[in-house]
Design a protein around this nucleic acid. Structure first.
Lengths: 159, 159
DNA sequence: TATTGTTATACTCTATAACTATA
DNA sequence: TATAGTTATAGAGTATAACAATA
């Protein structure tokens, strides 16, 4: 192992940091995808879409979903079609704009997402098990600092 | 924005941490992919493979590449075929085992990788620009702790 | 004209499994 | 039998661009 092998002492700290973060993220992500596939027959983008909707009872418009999921619109249509076909989400009309829909979880979708989220949480908690609460908080803050700076440079607007 | 929207106060710290790390990684990764595509007409897996070889003058066997890149063997064959077709890597025989090859960078591949790595480094350094050296080191250490623990649970062997 | 969402398409990346050739 | 690597295939995931309907 290790993709991280790429980062060597001759490289600046930032590069070693990035390679470690990338490797770790891929490792955890791979496990999450496996869990979603094996336990629920679903995929990470589908889970992501449902997660976006979970705390928005009124749903989200397609372009909002697209922006939040960081993928282009056509893909959101495809995933939404799948989930709608399984009765997990539904499209509802937006009054005042007949072009747009809002997508929201159905009761069945909400129930299934609750189960998935519970398993997912167990998996993630285990992954970060080695950190003390204080360390976890520090990590969270440092990542937040990087992300905020990054957004400022590349994605001016935010919610 | 934000995929991180998934993480709410009712969720444990680990989940918020994970979502923040995932979002940030995807953000940076997307920029890296764009840079590799636009400036060099290449992809992240191709860059990764070359990066693995860069510090191994004798090259690596296919199964070692597969393990390090965390993908299955067939994919390594495909990427190696592409790079070999462009004269960037070459397969050399392993004496004592006529089944195996070692893949290594050609001089042209080494030169090109050097250029790519230089641009890549600029991009990554900029991404983590907001951290002080001490903060970067802390982040590196915390990620290392999580990763080590993770490896112990899931991937016993290491290099 | 601009925007919302859909459709069609193509390409990269990936895993799986069957295959060959050596060991 | 087991291992190194290849081939073939299928599916996920993505971006692009052309399109329809509405604003």
């Amino acid at each position: 192992m290790d993709m991280e092998a790429r980062g060597r002492s001759e490289h600046p700290e930032a590069l070693r940091l990035w390679l470690r973060m990338l490797t770790l993220t891929q490792l955890i992500e791979k496990q999450v995808r496996t869990q979603l596939r094996e336990q629920f027959g679903t995929t990470l983008p589908r889970f992501d879409l449902m997660a976006q909707l979970e705390r928005k009872p009124d749903g989200l418009k397609m372009n909002e979903l697209s922006r939040r999921m960081m993928v282009t619109g056509g893909n959101v249509t495809g995933i939404t079609d799948q989930l709608a076909g399984e009765g997990l989400v539904e499209r509802v009309e937006v009054e005042g704009d007949r072009r747009a829909y809002r997508v929201r979880l159905t009761p069945a979708g909400r129930a299934l997402f609750g189960e998935m989220a519970r398993q997912h949480e167990i998996c993630i908690v285990a992954a970060f098990d080695s950190l003390s609460p204080a360390q976890a908080q520090t990590l969270h803050q440092l990542l937040g600092k990087v992300k905020q700076h990054y957004h400022r440079d590349t994605l001016p607007e935010s919610e």
